[in-house]
Simulated scan of single mutants.
Amino acid sequence: MPDPTPAEILADPQLWPAEPPQAMELQRRLAPQVRCEPLPARSVRLVAGLDVSYDNTRLAAAAVVMDLTTMRVVETATGAGTPRFPYVSGLFAFRELPPLLHALDGLRCRPDVLLCDGAGQAHPRRCGLACHVGVLLNRPTVGVAKSPLGTPGGVPERGRGAWASQRHGDTEVGRVLRTRSGVRPVYVSVGHRVTLEDACALTLRATPSYRLPEPIRAADQLSRRRLAEQH
């Protein structure tokens, strides 16, 4: 039998590597499968924010679907679990992916785009959490991180919508995006099946009032509540 593909390995946590070096190699194999392509011409309306909260022994994930035309919550779902991988920077996907997939499986609707609280291609191996989710599910996915992961990038001007590049060598892998004037930026990158331009435009559209997109803010709050309920 042929060896399993990276996506097949991700789909079965029993096949996941147990040690960081092997997990890094899996990310290197997965990274070339990320596709950058324009979002469909039809307007994106339903966007799911994804986030995970955890302590030393438990994880709680949340998916919150919002209608961007009204900024109202359409549906929510959660997932829970225990950590299956060490806490290692750049490898959080191996901790967070199982409960996130559980939460997404609980949704009845199909969001147009997934917004992950974490990196996409702006990652040391160009394969952050948003890439894991996007490639595995073959869904348009955007990474919106609160801090840079290995590539700080430039400093954008202070106005909303200003941005500066994050680069690995000569390649632009993400953008440092100002979602509110005079407020710390976020770090936007492609997870799968979006362009970087579309990813930034969607992030701004989903961020009318605060620093973070509303679907991610709502998912963060819900995952924290679910984690507290486990104790």
Rank of each mutant, 00 (worst) to 15 (best):
M1D: 14
D3R: 13
D3T: 07
A7D: 10
I9H: 10
L10G: 06
L10W: 11
L10C: 08
P13I: 13
P17H: 11
A18E: 11
A18P: 01
E19T: 12
P20S: 07
P20W: 03
P21L: 04
A23S: 05
A23Y: 11
L26T: 00
Q27F: 03
R29H: 09
A31K: 07
P32Q: 09
Q33K: 09
V34E: 02
V34M: 04
E37V: 14
E37N: 09
P38R: 08
P40I: 07
A41S: 13
A41D: 11
R45H: 11
L46I: 01
A48M: 00
A48H: 01
G49H: 09
D51I: 02
V52D: 02
S53R: 06
S53N: 09
Y54M: 10
Y54S: 11
D55C: 04
R58E: 03
L59K: 00
A62C: 07
V64K: 00
M66N: 03
D67P: 04
L68H: 11
V74L: 15
T76F: 03
T82P: 02
P83L: 01
P83F: 12
S89N: 06
F94S: 03
F94N: 00
R95D: 07
E96H: 12
L100M: 11
L100D: 09
L101M: 14
L101F: 09
D105S: 08
D105M: 07
R110S: 15
L114C: 02
L115K: 13
D117S: 06
A119N: 13
A122W: 00
H123W: 03
P124W: 08
R126I: 10
R126T: 13
G128W: 01
G134Q: 08
L137E: 12
L137T: 14
N138S: 15
R139A: 15
R139Y: 11
P140L: 10
P156L: 10
G159T: 13
R160W: 05
Q166T: 14
Q166A: 10
G169I: 12
T171V: 14
G174R: 00
R178K: 08
T179N: 14
R180V: 02
V183D: 05
V186P: 04
Y187E: 03
S189T: 06
V190S: 05
G191F: 02
L196D: 01
D198T: 07
A199W: 02
A201H: 10
L202D: 03
L202S: 05
T203P: 02
L204Q: 12
A206I: 12
P208Y: 12
P213S: 06
I216F: 02
R217W: 07
D220Y: 02
D220P: 01
D220V: 07
S223Q: 05
E229T: 15
